[in-house]
Amino acid sequence: MRPTETAAVGLDTPWADLPALLLPAYGETWAMVGMVMALVILVGGATGVLLYNTDSRGLFPRPRLHGVVSWLVNMGRSLPFLVLMAAIIPLTKWVTGTTIGIAAAVVPMTLAGIPFFARLVQNALNDLPRENMAVGLVTGSSTGQIIRQTQLREALPGLTSAITLNTISMIEYSAIAGTIGAGGIGYLAVTYGYQRFDTHVMAATIVVLIITVQLVQFAGDRISRALLRP
């Protein structure tokens, strides 16, 4: 889309009006990211645990299943987000009944986030000492106990870093999703900044995004470090 004739250059939104514009959009961004992350942590986390444990050295080696899941995850990760978003429009429509708005953005974001997070979880688990699993086994623990105690709990610092990284990616994706009218900060940047050359809004969204990402990273690092044991 090109800027229309009426959207003349220099018609910047007054600084004083920016909060009224930005705050609801910011809330929308977090609503999207929050919803997506909840799904991603659940499904992607489970997929990561599955990848780790179906591996030849995992708790229940299943080479064939591992291969299939690994292939699916790679497929999900091979498409750039914009392409994925466009490609799955029929699915998005079928799931949400619409192709625009927050609901419509959540579907491609979740679909992109799950394989990414699955690999991050698998990596975090791979960093654990291999003996952890043997400890679980020889102490007569159940599969669930072994996964919870010797895998997830021990990997918490690594998992926190994974969540941080994934959250930042989702903030970025939410901005891309703004182009299909998803709402949020990204939508603001596209409609005001890009289509109407509103430099005030453009600048404000950039600042907000930078600060947000910095804060998320900072908080993530702090939590991750707090979870480390001597």
């Binding site: 003996e131 400890v135 007569g140 623990s141 106990q145 105690q149 021990e154």
Partner: peptide, 23 residues
């Protein structure tokens, strides 16, 4: 185990309690 294989995020007491708790 050779390298003791204690769970790093658990205290000494929690490590020893692990088999008991799971029982």
């Amino acid at each position: 185990f050779q390298h003791s294989a204690l769970l790093r995020r658990m205290t000494v007491a929690e490590n020893v309690a692990l088999p008991l708790r799971n029982l």
